[in-house]
Design a protein around this nucleic acid. Sequence first.
RNA 1: GGAGCGUUGGUCAAGGGGUUAAGACACCUCCCUUUCACGGAGGAAUCACGGGUUCGAUUCCCGUACGCUCUACCA
Length: 504
Amino acid sequence: MDKKVRVRFAPSPTGGLHLGGVRTVLFNYLFAKHHGGDFILRIEDTDQTRFVPGAEEYIFNCLAWCGLTPDESAIHGGPYGPYRQSERKALYRDYAEQLVAKGLAYYAFDTAEALEAKRKEIPNFQYSHATRLQMKNSLTLSKEETEQLLAAQTPHVIRINMPADETISFTDMIRGEVNFHSALVDDKVLLKADGMPTYHLAVVVDDYLMKITHAFRGEEWLPSAPVHIVLWKHLFGLENMPQWAHLPLILKPDGNGKLSKRDGDRLGFPVFAMDWQDPRTNEKTTGFKERGFLPEAFINMLAMLGWNDGTGQEIFTLEELVKQFSMERVHKGGAKFDYEKAKWFNHEWLKKLPVEQWMPEVKKQFEANNITITDDKKLIEVIELVKDRCSLFSDFVQQASFFFKAPEAIEVTAIQPKWNEQKNLFFAELIRAYELMPLWKHDELEKEFKEIAAVNDIKPGELMLPLRIMLVGGKFGPHVFNIAEIIGKEETIKRMQHTLGMLK
RNA sequence: GGAGCGUUGGUCAAGGGGUUAAGACACCUCCCUUUCACGGAGGAAUCACGGGUUCGAUUCCCGUACGCUCUACCA
């Protein structure tokens, strides 16, 4: 029987959680759940210089919002902890030493200055089989010298001793067989001078210890795969190595290249899952959540960036995605992010989900714009009326504020040129009639409106827009008489009089 | 510079040796609508280029071009 599937997402807590990161989580999650396996979240915080307070908690919050709950993590617990690499520091050195003992790694004592000098001396310098004999390390020093330096606690790193002439190959679940020539891969640092492992060492040690069966990560990792393969071969055996899949990148909408936070700022759309405030600069970046996206839509949209089930279906629930997902159907090429399409996904989900479920978000958006809503029944009525014209929760502010508050700007210029005394008289009469209306219902209002128009011999079409401008302030929104009914007699008449005053 | 990966309409993409080369988003036209949307009907691709293999290539092979990623004691 096959081993239980175990996958992991391993972010470093250095800032906001990027679209591409969430998609990597998603594909990990979908694959694991499709196979009845476990999804592990491991924090890769081995670079102490890049530690950002709050970033870890933020990642957990994003995952919670998305509904992608880890089975094991630093906060969910689990049998293979700790799940923060900084807390596992002690165990890495031993593996690096094992490699040194076997001659597959070596101590290197080169200072930053020496490395810098070498880079200047040799163009495109690589610390590799071609150059390592020119450097200060346990390969060039005598055994005694090395031991002396070590005993004196001289700062040093441990580097992998890449084979000089081997073909390193592995099978990627998305790309098939991939080959590298070992001579072109440099001797990556495995253990840093501060005793922390680099990503290269940590990822293989932890994947082994945590019994990871499938390792998925972004395509940017492909060039360093041979380092990981060599490590696996000598540390734990290729037969125990997880199956790899390198996911295609999410590209910027214009031009080419990886989508970055900068692109979002420049083009006006979010890139992070949720709002992120950098504690060092206090710079605040809005996320998809706060911008008015439903998590269901966000996930759905991400899933379709680089994957589809081949049927043409585009709207999927998480459960459906779990059921349908397969790594073989993931694309090789990167996908450009399209914000318009992202909004479309949200629009579809808005239509699909019951209003009650997302009404609180709409309220929040109104509150952020100083409109407090106390009447839930009215809000639901309003939402039903305008939801076809909204893609995001934030759109409701623009589309429905006038139901709760008289419009601040009245687009009188839209009606002024064609305004005349006849229309003036019509509206005066309409107001008198409306004041006496016993039943304030949209069909009654419309009937009355048309009757008075007929008596005055004006085409109703000439009067509809003026009425709309009076009530809404602009040329948009649902049927005018529905609006009038909801805002009520008093408010309707007040707004008519207000605009009439402006037209005199 | 080197290595690896990629390339079907503006975008996401289905398909796969012989097809009218799906569908969605965006865009344009029309219908519906006395506003804006929604909805409905239409509109656009010689499948990067050049060689092969083949009766036949967008599909297989090899080159070329272009793009991207990596090339840190960052992940």
